[in-house]
Amino acid sequence: MSTVEEIESAIENLKEDEFLRLAKWLEAKVADAWDRRMNQDSKDGKLDFLFDEAGSERVTGELNPWPATR
């Protein structure tokens, strides 16, 4: 049995409050990983195309405010 399978099995046996605690912890870990990835991608210039696109849309008047206003 792999470590992942052992973890999955252990999760299946958690009480509801323990499971919810674990889910909250995992959600925070995923969010942190996402933030690190986005920050690195930004530093590496991988998101520059978004700034270029927004700049072009600003010039042509197609840029919508964010968050959207009504």
Rank of each mutant, 00 (worst) to 15 (best):
S2W: 07
E12Q: 11
G61T: 02
L50K: 07
N39Q: 09
T69I: 14
P67E: 01
E16M: 01
T60Y: 03
S42F: 08
W66I: 13
R21S: 06
D35T: 07
G61M: 04
A23K: 08
L63S: 07
D32S: 15
G45K: 09
I7F: 05
K43E: 12
K29F: 01
W25N: 05
P67Y: 00
P67F: 00
R21W: 00
G55H: 01
D17G: 03
M38H: 06
R37H: 00
D48L: 14
G55V: 00
P65F: 04
T3K: 14
W25Q: 04
R36V: 02
G61S: 05
L47P: 09
L26K: 14
R37G: 01
R70P: 04
F49Q: 10
R70W: 06
A10F: 04
N13C: 00
A33E: 05
L50P: 05
N64L: 11
E18M: 05
K43G: 03
V59M: 14
E53L: 09
G45A: 08
M38V: 15
K29S: 00
I11C: 04
T69A: 09
L26M: 09
V59K: 14
N13D: 04
P65E: 04
T3D: 10
I11N: 04
V59Y: 11
G61K: 04
E57C: 07
S9N: 14
D48I: 10
D35Y: 08
A54I: 12
L22R: 00
S42M: 10
E12R: 06
W66C: 09
S56V: 03
P65W: 03
T3P: 02
S2I: 08
L47T: 14
N13T: 01
W34S: 02
K43S: 11
K24A: 15
D35A: 10
F19I: 05
R70V: 13
V59S: 13
R21Y: 01
E5P: 06
K29W: 01
P67L: 02
M1C: 10
K43M: 10
E12K: 11
F19G: 02
D32V: 14
D44P: 05
D44I: 01
G55S: 02
D32F: 12
F19V: 04
S9D: 14
D48Q: 12
D48P: 11
L14Q: 08
S56L: 10
L20H: 05
E62D: 12
R58I: 13
I11A: 02
L63T: 13
E12C: 06
D52M: 13
L50A: 11
E8Y: 11
E6G: 08
P65C: 01
V30C: 04
A28H: 14
L47G: 06
D48N: 15
P67H: 01
K15N: 06
E6N: 09
D32L: 13
A33L: 09
R58W: 13
A10R: 07
I7Q: 13
A31N: 15
G61F: 01
S9E: 08
R37N: 03
A68T: 09
A68N: 13
W66Y: 15
M38N: 06
L47D: 04
K24H: 06
A23F: 01
L20Q: 11
L26F: 11
D52I: 15
V4Q: 03
R70A: 06
R37P: 00
A33Q: 07
D17F: 03
E12P: 02
A68H: 12
E53S: 12
P65M: 01
K15L: 05
E16V: 03
A23P: 00
W66N: 12
E57L: 15
V59Q: 15
N64M: 09
V59F: 08
E27L: 10
